[in-house]
Amino acid sequence: MQQFPCPFCGLRDEREFHFAGEAGKMRPDTSGEVTQTDWSRYLNSYKNREGKASEVWVHLPCQEYFIMHRDTLSMKVLGTEQLRRQEEI
């Protein structure tokens, strides 16, 4: 059972998190033409890297989406990046 760090809530049990996609994937701008290939890549292509991976995760109870860098072999969490600007507490 892993522990992941939510950038806002801190270290929590993995059961509080969901995987939300690979980091760095942009939704194609559908206000213009999007080729079939680009759309398909957006929906279906995953690098699914062995070892170091960067992924978007969501901490379910607080619904914060963030980027987590982790090693998919050792299960080590290498760090997180918050997607929201920092605000005073």
Binding site: V58, Y65, R84
Partner: peptide
């Protein structure tokens, strides 16, 4: 609710 929250933080000004 989860889907909405996901889109809110992706491509929108949260």
């Amino acid at each position: 609710n989860r889907a909405l929250e996901g889109w809110r933080q992706d491509g929108n000004d949260p």
